[in-house]
């Protein structure tokens, strides 16, 4: 078993996300996270980042199955292809007063989370990082008033000059 972060460049057309998600659910593959957004100037191409796990044979299947979808341009296993960056964005709401507020701000500072909203009883922190960093931050916030989390799931890109297309 291993984890794989897979980047998929697709035509930005109706139903394409349903095809990808249907493939994973229909064939019983894991999705740990999945993100999607258009990435070119004309809005014709979208990039999907899927984090999945499985045996080497299953991951090879996942890539081959993705690649044979008609609107898929390119499939790349970033985990296999070498050094790459993985980032996730999270918005984290913490509600509380007194010492808890002070503690929350102190921890946020240590984790380089930014305050993007504040009331006398709450903060919303914004942080980027890999999943483990966000998990760790949320775990620390839990006893001091963590109320709500919204996360994007991972986006990823290869280091250096190498690009998905060309």
């Amino acid at each position: 078993m291993r984890a794989a972060t897979i980047a998929v460049l697709v035509e930005n057309e109706a139903g394409v996300l349903a095809r990808v998600i249907g493939l994973f659910s229909g064939r019983g593959y894991n999705i740990d996270s999945l993100t999607v957004a258009p990435v070119d100037a004309e809005g014709r191409l979208s990039r999907i980042t899927v984090v999945t796990s499985g045996t080497e044979m299953v991951i090879e299947q996942i890539k081959a199955q993705l690649d044979r979808l008609v609107p898929v341009h390119k499939v790349s296993d970033l985990t296999l292809e070498g050094p790459h960056l993985v980032r996730e964005l999270a918005l984290i709401k913490v509600v509380g007063t007194g010492d808890h507020r002070v503690e929350a701000l102190r921890l946020a500072d240590a984790f380089r989370a930014r305050v993007v909203d504040a009331t006398t009883e709450s903060f919303v922190f914004e942080m980027t990082g890999n999943a483990e960093k966000i998990d760790a931050f949320c775990a620390l916030m839990r006893p001091i008033g963590l109320k709500e989390i919204s996360r994007t799931g991972a986006v990823a890109i290869a280091r250096g000059t190498h690009a998905l297309m060309g």
């Binding site: 044979m57 090879e60 299947q61 081959a64 199955q65 690649d67 044979r68």
Partner: peptide, 11 residues
């Protein structure tokens, strides 16, 4: 002709 047929069941 279909790469997904290869190494699906049998290595």
């Amino acid at each position: 002709i279909d790469p997904s047929s290869i190494n699906k069941n049998v290595k």
